[in-house]
Design a protein around this nucleic acid. Structure first.
Lengths: 248, 248
DNA sequence: AAGTGGTCTAGACCACAGT
DNA sequence: CTGTGGTCTAGACCACTTT
């Protein structure tokens, strides 16, 4: 059964398959930083496909920081010190934690179904009558609670949520169990003075401020379904990004 | 003469021209958030071009947060509160400042040609013999110096730099005067304890930490030519981003 | 001159929405 | 069923780099 899915994956989305195969070769060192990968024409022959399809794969690699295309020369593998640049775009805490070595624990501190107060109606663009899941979790690194995650999810999109799911990964539930697709997010990073809640739930070590990452998350039909605040102790915050200059 | 350039621009890079025309229509309200823009086939007819070319333009719009494509339905205009989401990707201070209302002043505090100490050789991946421009500037909002920018640029790429250029925009000089193209950057955001330098140059108002944005900037031949640290007073820092979930 | 990536075309078939 | 976006093809011409 799985084989059929595999075959389907290969037949459909040829360019994604090629993208992943080439990305793997950069990650495992088959292609070294500074080297040129085979030309588009060569790749088109190797994969028995058209050049435009190869170009779609290479464009993706370029957008994700794997290669730089050099006109007249070829495509050079970038030195993406992948260890320190795991992130680009959306990343949930669980995905992030999977790539870190220190042991990380997640604790669900609060789990309720609420009616949104005005500020939340604004954040989630919903009405006072919508039901909203409110989830508060702490993230513990090295025995210290350094991140406070406050999630607000619209029940109309996520009907069934349990405390147990929140202890694992909410995103996995949404994408695997519900079959929804998270498509894009608007992110804002600011620094705020600690609240009483921060002091109650975090081991602040005397810090008076937290870095707050506010995330507005959208499904692939462009509906806003989640607002998240991730509150980090100053000294444990780090954000990395690969950014290509698009058009001006 | 300008007309010829214009015509060339239209003839070449048709998809960029279409991208910009459509983006303008969303910015000026011709297309309203929630509306569907004309279908790909319609646009192909309107612009007398092929559908693939239209799709390149729409893909760009999608990547930059202007639209969401809905299979079977069309492309819907996103509510990108553009005022608060001017940024995605690389932005120099000048570009940012242009979009802000408060009066902003730039002061060049230091301007030297130096031999890079070891830590800088590492950051810029250069040797002890390379010449490096060191530029320190403060940014003043509302009579307070709240940002300290430390720029290090390799002289081999930027041979001529003056204090006056630094007072304006270094990027403008690079792209317009030198004809180089800035292509991508790796960005890291962390919080650090204030240094003596921070205290000397900034009006810290008692804050003990600064938000530090470290930027590694590359030209379009993939050469690293600049390392920048932008040090922000906590309460004046803000970073916004639009992020699309690429493939997993 | 030959090879590279960048752009563009005119078609084709598919999966999916709404009718 | 029609119209939508998603994928793919086989070719073409261009600008650029290298030999």
């Amino acid at each position: 059964m799985n084989d059929i899915v595999q075959v389907r994956q290969v037949k459909k989305n040829k360019y994604k398959y090629i993208y992943e195969e080439l990305a793997d070769k950069m990650k495992d060192g088959t292609f070294q930083p500074g080297e040129l990968i085979p030309s588009e024409n060569e790749l088109a022959q190797q994969y028995e496909t058209s050049r435009e399809t190869i170009r779609k794969a290479l464009t993706l690699l370029s957008q994700n920081g794997y290669i730089q295309k050099l006109r007249g020369k070829g495509s050079v593998v970038l030195d993406t010190n992948r260890a320190s640049f795991p992130i680009s775009g959306l990343v949930s805490f669980k995905e992030l934690a999977d790539q870190m070595k220190g042991s990380i624990k997640t604790e669900v501190e609060e789990f309720n179904l609420i009616k949104p107060p005005p500020f939340l109606q604004h954040q989630l663009q919903c009405s006072a009558k919508d039901d909203v899941w409110k989830v508060i979790r702490t993230r513990t690194f090295d025995e210290e609670r350094v991140i406070l995650d406050k999630d607000f999810l619209l029940k109309k999109y996520i009907p069934d949520l349990t405390e147990e799911i929140c202890g694992q990964s909410i995103y996995a539930h949404i994408e695997h169990d519900l079959g929804l697709t998270i498509s894009f997010a608007k992110k804002e990073i600011v620094v705020e003075t600690c609240t009483e809640e921060d002091k109650r739930y975090l081991d602040l070590n005397g810090f008076l401020h937290v870095v707050v990452v506010k995330n507005y998350v959208y499904l692939d039909d462009a509906s806003l379904f989640q607002y998240t605040e991730s509150r980090h102790r100053l000294d444990k915050f780090r954000f990395v990004d690969f950014a290509r200059r698009h058009m001006k």
